[in-house]
């Protein structure tokens, strides 16, 4: 598996990926966004999200945390242009979001690798869809795979990969066309705790180097605190922002960061906000 070449590999991955990303684009403003699902047959309509506002600066790592039904995924999909808010708007780099755009990459909880494409071809999917020249991106895709510890697997098919390897492939896929914003919808939620932690550390190293804007949805508070500059804590009925929490942990963060006092203080502050007794 990939564990052995973990930290060294990702460090150099960081360098490789850094070279290709240059712009300071990727600022997000969410302005009073609401989402109402119309009812059927006269029942009350469902207010999924009500009047949510926050902003994410270019290069910032922000997590959305909250219980099921708080609308955190709805917010992510609104930023991605995959769903239209019923009220308010989302603005990216000064332009309101009306449809999905190339500069925004999305990673889902399930890897969604295509069984008829091998690992390399799966990573190149955005390149194919964007009508870019495959040859121009081949090296970058290979580099990403190599540094994600999947160098030996580029010709393997998704059926042959473990869950963690599948999500690594999906991570390479979202990065291959160099988006300025990466939206992640509980990407490691289906993985076991060990794999999840390893991938979190790798993700941070990559982010440290590329400084892409990341919006990360999770229901794992520890994961959110460890990864993020800010954690936006959301509540239910209706989905709304409870508090925008700064994470006072210095970067770069390592596993050791999780032993530090600010980590625990932030974690318990968020637990209190969400009404989790301890």
């Amino acid at each position: 598996m990939v564990a052995s070449n973990g930290s060294m590999a990702t460090q150099s991955m960081a360098h490789a990926v850094k070279a290709s990303s240059s712009s300071a684009l990727g600022a997000i403003q969410v302005e009073g966004v609401g989402k109402v699902y119309p009812s059927r047959r006269g029942a009350a309509s469902i207010v999924a999200v009500k009047d949510v506002s926050f902003s994410v600066a270019a290069g910032e790592f922000v997590s959305l945390v909250g219980p099921s039904g708080c609308g955190k995924s709805t917010m992510l999909m609104a930023i991605a242009g995959l769903t239209q808010p019923s009220g308010g708007r989302v603005v990216i780099d000064g332009q309101p979001v009306t449809a999905p755009r190339r500069s925004v990459g999305v990673m889902f909880q399930t890897p969604e690798l295509f069984r008829w494409r091998n690992v390399l071809e799966n990573v190149l999917l955005p390149v194919d869809v964007f009508g870019l020249n495959r040859a121009a991106y081949l090296e970058r895709a290979r580099e990403l795979l190599r540094l994600a510890g999947l160098g030996a697997f580029e010709h393997a098919y998704p059926q042959e990969l473990s869950g963690g390897m599948e999500q690594r492939t999906a991570l390479c896929r979202v990065l291959v066309a160099d988006p300025s914003i990466v939206l992640m919808d509980e990407p490691f939620g289906a993985l076991d705790e060990f794999t999840r932690e390893r991938l979190n550390i790798e993700l941070l190293r990559i982010w440290d180097a590329t400084r892409k804007t990341v919006v990360f949805v999770t229901h794992n508070i520890g994961e959110a605190v460890f990864l993020s500059d800010r954690v936006i804590v959301m509540g239910t009925q209706p989905g709304r922002v409870l508090e925008d929490v700064q994470v006072p942990l210095p970067r770069p963060r390592t596993v050791e960061s999780m032993r530090e006092r600010p980590y625990h203080e932030t974690l318990y502050h968020i637990r209190d906000l969400l009404g989790l007794s301890h």
């Binding site: 991605a80 999905p100 755009r101 999917l125 869809v129």
Partner: peptide, 26 residues
């Protein structure tokens, strides 16, 4: 799979691309 379709939409894929790259093989 709905999420695969969402992935293609997030890439701003055309209907034709979604059909050829995803729906047909699936």
């Amino acid at each position: 799979p709905a999420n695969s379709l969402r992935l293609m939409t997030s890439l701003a894929a055309s209907r034709r691309q979604t059909f050829l790259m995803l729906s047909l093989p699936a």
